[in-house]
């Protein structure tokens, strides 16, 4: 049930101010995004139209803490088909960015492990300029599934290593100072 007293009328502007979220107010709820969504096909509980509608109504807390926010597969099908050019995939990204900031500030808790993986990945790019696959995957397994998870994935890791597909150490580029400056500029 919607409680009007709990709605945040500024939420849509907050999203529109995030890179990628600019077009959210164009949505007229036609459901075109949802009928073709591959995730909705296997989970009726995942409904991008509802996420957008709730965001436009100002149901800020409900949208930011909804686990389904992390189920978008970024396949860009809705982005392609949207008659209003809402750029839904990127709007999802804008909402995720707000959710991550709220979680960092300790205001909400994110149950899905995806932001943890993304952050480990991005941190490894920040320090090396390239993705450190073995390190990021290992740390993610350890943090989400414990040492058992790491051991469970070991045979696959060994097979990749045997085929020369996995490097034990990270590769560092020369221009890591430039990478750091890119991070600083876009985080301003």
């Amino acid at each position: 049930m919607i409680k009007t007293s709990e709605l945040d009328p500024n939420f849509k502007y907050e999203i529109a101010n995030e890179p990628g979220g600019e077009n959210i107010k164009r949505c007229f709820n036609c459901t075109g995004c949802t009928v073709g969504c591959p995730v909705t096909e296997i989970d009726k509980g995942y409904n991008p139209r509802k996420i957008l509608r709730k965001a436009l109504l100002g149901m800020r807390n409900e949208v930011l803490t909804d686990e389904s926010l992390w189920l978008c597969a970024s396949c860009y099908l809705c982005y392609e088909r949207c008659p209003q050019d809402v750029k839904i995939t990127e709007v999802m990204g804008a909402i995720r960015a707000i959710a991550q900031r709220e979680a960092k500030a300790g205001k909400i808790k994110l149950a899905n492990p995806k932001p943890l993986f993304d952050n480990l990945f991005i941190d490894s790019v920040k320090s090396n300029g390239k993705w450190y696959e073995a390190g990021v995957s290992g740390m993610f397994m350890l943090k989400t599934k414990g040492i058992g998870g790491v051991i469970g994935y070991a045979p696959m890791g060994m097979e990749l290593f045997r085929k020369g597909k996995l490097s034990i150490l990270p590769h560092k580029i020369k221009g890591t100072d430039q990478i750091k400056r890119i991070f600083e500029e876009v985080e301003k």
């Binding site: 804008a94 991005i122 790019v125 390239k130 990478i179 985080e187």
Partner: peptide
């Protein structure tokens, strides 16, 4: 020479970071 990660799918939702890394 000396290319870097484009941000892949992990930064695709962090639009400016993804585009900044790619622009280099």
């Amino acid at each position: 020479e000396d290319w870097n990660c484009c941000g892949a799918l992990e930064a695709i939702f962090d639009k400016e970071l993804s585009m900044g890394l790619s622009a280099r």
